[in-house]
Design a protein around this nucleic acid. Structure first.
Length: 470
RNA sequence: CGGGGAGUGGCGCAGCGGUAGCGCACAGCCUUUGGGUGGCUGAGGUCGUGGGUUCAAAUCCCACCUCCCCGACCA
């Protein structure tokens, strides 16, 4: 031990630590065009597991997957005033193609409300066609001013759900359902990340929405990350794109739409929520490798035992990697798997084996356990659940230790230096929100006193969660 | 766009007028293998770009470009 640290310690420089982890755990590289990224196989595998878990929940909520084009006529964006105002500055626009200047510029989608709205209008005629529940997995492009790998890249991958409903109540209930049953449930049970579920203030709302709901998570440095959002679009897009239907009385009505998205940003959130000075810590539910069986030395029957253990775990449905690269030193390999955050490591070597034992290390705890050979497979499999629960508990405790109840705006500014401040929304208001903005602090979300999601900004006794964010 | 910082082998850096270096990583050999083992050998760089000063520029001067960090924007 006690070599030079592999990573910049978090306490010394958190952003640097983040970049170190991304590089050393072989997660991503910067792309050649500013703000773009190359997702390397390990991070891609992680994303695939996240994607699958989110996709299952989306389907369970009744939405169907479809795919809409990358290119959108520029004129579409202009149809909804707030929307175009919000997105214009960050659009990538194609003006030339096929060797000629285009008659109408084409926008590379920053999000797809507009194209999807256009097609919803074609497909919806009757109240019997509603609700129409669509989702797509896609890449989108936003020319952000300050890119950061995974957190804010020029091109990113996400799912975007788009739905149309007959009534405001139905749309509203569905947006809330997505927030709870798809996003928050996924983040808490799979990513082991506790999230605040709440309502955005007018200032923080999505361009073109009448209401934005959010899941906010606290990172290791006390800053907040918006992990996913669900918007009620009212009839704004329905009016802009003529999404109309005949109700059961034969009257023409505009539909009520929603949209909701979660992106590769979640990978960054997972890194910054769970990571420590030794690297990443991946929750078992989404870990590409859940257990690594590390052959320490290839002597006696060590290799055979390692293979047997790996095989037995695989048979149990555990995602296992056998690391038998004995030409690389043990220490190096142990450090490498810690960097990559593999939840459970089984170390098999002749010394332990002579006594009928192997060693098991959990990534969420510093010490190791020595176990009899016969107990290893059960123990390792059970440890996965313990690590999953342990990471969640630690993240929740961290958030709670860095959240403070305050009464005044100035106290909120102070508390936001290290974490979240909870302040009565009445004590803040839009003026207080502007005051916070001058210190780069924002209202992350509004909640009712019991933690539930408000129906409106002007409900009495709302609590504002205030903090710095990524 | 405002404020800081930096551009030198893949990565991290030193050198700051006199023939391009170090650490890590990489390749080969030996040694080691239970927490980044040690040694020898080797490969790899038009010193961000353009111009200027000088006998001589990575080094000094001018201009430009790019990247990173802090903010405004944001999944």
């Amino acid at each position: 031990m006690a070599k030079a640290p592999v990573l910049t310690p978090q306490s010394e420089d958190f952003p640097r630590w983040y970049q170190d982890v991304v590089a050393k755990a072989e997660l991503a590289d910067n792309g050649p065009v500013r703000g773009t990224m190359v997702i390397r196989p390990y991070a891609w595998a992680l994303w695939e597991h996240m994607q699958a878990a989110v996709d299952r929940r989306i389907k369970a909520a009744g939405a169907e997957n479809a795919y809409f084009p990358l290119f959108i006529p520029e004129s579409y964006l202009r149809r909804e005033a707030q929307h175009v105002e919000g997105f214009s500055p960050e659009l990538a626009v194609v003006t030339h193609a096929g060797g000629k200047e285009l008659e109408e510029p084409i926008v590379v989608r920053p999000t797809s409300e507009t194209v999807i709205g256009e097609y919803m209008a074609k497909w919806i005629q009757s109240y019997r066609d509603l609700p129409l529940l669509l989702n797509q997995w896609a890449n989108v492009v936003r020319w952000e001013l300050r890119p950061r790998v995974f957190l804010r890249t020029t091109e990113f991958l996400w799912q975007e759900g788009h739905t149309a409903h007959a009534t405001a109540e139905d749309a509203s209930a569905y947006a809330l359902r997505i927030l709870h049953d798809v996003y928050a449930d996924f983040m808490e049970t799979q990513l082991a990340m506790p999230v605040l579920r709440g309502r955005k203030t007018r200032r923080e709302r999505f361009a073109g929405a009448v209401n934005t709901l959010t899941c906010e998570a606290m990172m290791g440095d006390g800053k907040s990350l918006q992990m996913g959002t669900s918007h009620e679009l009212g009839q704004n897009f329905a009016k802009a794109f003529d999404i109309v239907y005949s109700d059961d009385a034969g009257q023409q009505q505009h539909a009520w739409t929603t949209s909701w998205g979660a992106s590769t940003r979640m990978v960054g959130g997972l890194i910054m929520c769970h990571g420590d000075d030794a690297g990443l810590r991946v929750p078992p539910a989404v870990a590409p490798i859940q257990v690594v069986v590390l052959l320490i030395r290839d002597e006696g029957d060590a290799r055979a035992e390692a293979q047997r253990i790996a095989g037995a775990l695989t048979d149990r449905g555990v995602r296992v990697r056998l690391d038998d690269r004995v030409d690389t030193g043990f220490g190096r390999r142990a450090v490498d798997w810690e960097l990559k955050g593999v939840p459970v490591r089984v170390e098999v070597g002749p010394r332990d084996l002579a006594e009928g034992n192997v060693t098991v290390a959990r990534r969420d705890q510093p010490d190791k356990a020595t176990l009899p050979l016969a107990a290893v497979v059960d123990h390792a499999a059970a440890a996965l659940d313990e690590v999953q629960a342990g990471l969640f508990a630690r993240a929740l405790a961290h958030r709670e230790s860095r959240s403070a109840d305050v009464k005044t705006v100035e106290e909120a500014v102070e508390a936001a230096r290290t974490g979240f401040a909870r302040i009565p929304y009445a004590a803040l208001g839009e003026e207080g929100e502007n005051r916070l903005a001058s210190d780069a602090i924002t209202v992350r979300c509004l909640q009712r006193p019991d933690g539930s999601v408000p129906d409106a900004d002007d409900e009495p006794d709302l609590v504002a969660w205030v903090g710095r964010s990524y």
